[in-house]
Simulated scan of single mutants.
Amino acid sequence: MIDKSPGLHGVIPPLVSPLTAEGEVDARSLARLIQHALGAGADGVFILGSSGEGTSLSDDQRARMLDVARSETAGAATLLAGTIEPSTNRVADLVRQAIKFSVDGVVITAPFYVPPHRSEIDRHYRRLAELADQTPVYGYDIPSRVRLKLDSELILELAADGVLAGVKDSSGAELSLRTLVNGRRDRGLTGFSIMTGSEVTVDTAMQLGVDGTVPGLGNVDPAGYVRILSLVAAGDLAGARAEQDRLIRLFEIVTVGDRTRIGAASAALGAFKAAVWLLGVIDCPRLAEPAIGLNDAEIAAIRGRMEAAGLL
């Protein structure tokens, strides 16, 4: 097995993509957002994923995001890039783009739109890992978006063959997470990283043996997730649970958006952007087209929840 993993661990927030009022990438806001995360103790950042609206941005916008993020993280933190498209050929174009910016890893879902067979998912990852060469490839298990649950055994097989350097598990399935952690141990895959994408079960996931977390709410309160990991490492499980419970209450900001007016994804991403805008980190809470952001009343409700969480 070829170990291509840089050893992902700790807190790596999947950052939103700050846009101007005209819908272009806001480089200054992105730089501040990256420093907001790193200054709180995050170990790296993940751009152009689901929280980063990666599938909604143009190639030029993606390139601008990559350029700014590489400049802000160079030599200081891990930079992961989402390369998410429905087919192998389309993902390949994004992988080539990301590699030009010397990212530390690319994050890839299973193919979607045309439902794939297990053997086709296997083929997808193997071909993209060959293209990525020395850039680590991380699997992304997010059934809520691709309508498919990655098979844990397939992930472990790809890890054993040196195809995948790690996985972001956003499935919300505890059995899947346990299977990955136990399978890694049983197969001796010491270089394979397992990161949870859940905002609300980080304390228990760390106790299971995952390496860290990639929480969308980490845009808003990265320090809270850093504290959870520190408390678990120190054996203060009660303290970790208390901090997790605080973040669960804060996570309710994703329910503020009126679902009769906007979609669930817009409500969640709109909440994250509105929250970091209220913190003064980004200049505008606009979402990428065609998503509709939160209105003034909804943003006011988010302000109240942030005040209750001690952030404002």
Rank of each mutant, 00 (worst) to 15 (best):
D3V: 10
D3N: 11
G7S: 10
L8V: 04
V11A: 06
V11I: 11
P14Q: 03
L15Y: 01
V16T: 14
A21H: 10
G23C: 12
E24G: 14
S29Y: 02
R32N: 15
L33P: 01
I34K: 07
Q35M: 07
H36E: 06
L38S: 02
D43W: 04
V45E: 07
V45A: 08
F46T: 10
I47T: 15
I47G: 14
L48G: 07
L48H: 06
G49S: 03
G52I: 04
E53P: 06
E53C: 11
L57W: 03
L57A: 05
L57S: 05
S58K: 06
Q61F: 10
Q61R: 09
D67T: 11
V68W: 00
R70F: 08
E72K: 05
A74V: 13
A74G: 14
A74D: 15
A77L: 02
T78P: 08
T78E: 09
L79F: 06
L80G: 01
A81L: 10
T83F: 06
T83V: 15
E85F: 04
A92P: 13
L94E: 14
R96W: 08
A98E: 03
A98N: 06
I99F: 12
K100E: 15
V103P: 01
V107S: 09
I108W: 06
I108P: 04
I108T: 09
T109K: 02
P111A: 12
P115Y: 06
P115M: 05
I121R: 06
Y125R: 11
L128T: 09
L128R: 03
A129E: 03
E130R: 09
L131G: 11
A132V: 07
V137T: 08
I142P: 01
R145Y: 12
L150G: 15
L154W: 06
I155M: 08
I155R: 04
L156N: 10
E157W: 07
A159N: 08
A160R: 12
D161F: 06
V163G: 04
K168S: 00
E174A: 14
S176W: 05
S176R: 08
R178G: 14
T179R: 07
T179F: 08
R184H: 13
R185L: 12
F192E: 02
S193I: 00
M195K: 04
G197L: 03
S198E: 03
V200Q: 05
T201M: 09
D203M: 08
A205E: 00
L208N: 00
D211M: 01
D211P: 01
T213M: 03
T213D: 00
V214Q: 01
L217Y: 00
G218A: 04
G218F: 03
N219Q: 11
N219W: 04
P222G: 09
G224W: 00
R227Q: 01
L229M: 04
L237M: 12
A238M: 10
R241M: 10
R241H: 02
E243R: 02
Q244P: 08
D245K: 09
I248R: 02
T260N: 13
I262E: 03
S266W: 15
A274R: 02
W277P: 03
P285V: 04
I292S: 11
I292M: 11
G293A: 11
N295T: 14
N295P: 14
A300D: 15
A301T: 15
I302E: 02
I302Y: 01
R303Q: 13
E307V: 05
G310S: 09
G310I: 06
